[in-house]
Design a protein around this nucleic acid. Structure first.
Lengths: 116, 116
DNA sequence: GTACTATATATCATGTAACGACATATCAAA
DNA sequence: TTTGATATGTCGTTACATGATATATAGTAC
């Protein structure tokens, strides 16, 4: 497992949004799901299968970490599990953003060359 | 098969670059491969398997079309096959660029909120 | 008191796409 | 004559998304 953020790129769209959702601070799975929906302008609707398998993968890769037992305001539903970005996770997210900016820059150049 | 470009998104990185490579005009497969490598700053090295399976898929989806027998300056290698963007392909590429811009915008907002 | 809805977790089967490895062919230069 | 650049393609494996399905809890409406 590399510590070079570049080696984790490109991120898939769900993965990108999950990490971005955690950028401001810790969240539990279901909160991530709702946040991503809003954050993406109702465009990305994570299914629970996508969400929880991605969380498992990101934990394995140490891009996020599980926060041990935030003794939380229990609302309805099963007990919440909170996650946060690791340093590596944040660096991956930043590297991915730079990658995306490069793609947009090149696209804007080529799409302007012919009359768009 | 939809004519709504949004329904083809998100594109994978190889697919995005293949379409972008065709934006200025027709190319054959091997030329696309070299162009993508340069265009991406030596970052994306398409394997021939990725390239030709993607071309097959894009033909099926009618995002690109095969140009029939450009009687071409035959150089070395097997006979070239030329491809070009369809109108739909161009619209998909534009829609994808807009999607990427949205992701970058949101990422820049959230990554600035905490001190990046 | 009971059914419904939102909250919250998770797995399974299937489909799609990337990718390394492999295969084939042509021409030019060393 | 053999190497390297050009040029096309398939096969097996792996990774990931996704719809369907399952389980559990708390509040609300009837």
């Amino acid at each position: 497992m590399s510590t070079d953020p570049i080696s984790y790129l490109p991120l898939t769209e769900p993965t990108f949004y999950i990490l971005l959702s955690l950028a401001p601070g810790k969240k539990h799975g279901y909160a991530i799901m709702k946040d991503v929906r809003e954050l993406s302008g109702e465009r990305v609707h994570l299914s629970t299968s996508t969400l929880y398998t991605a969380i498992g993968r990101l934990l394995d890769q140490e891009l996020i970490e599980r926060l041990s037992d935030e003794k939380q305001d229990a609302g309805p539903g099963l007990p919440r599990k909170f996650y946060a970005l690791t340093d590596l996770g944040r660096r991956v997210l930043e590297a991915e953003t730079i990658r995306l900016e490069g793609m947009v820059r090149e696209a804007r150049l080529r799409l302007r060359e012919d009359g768009v």
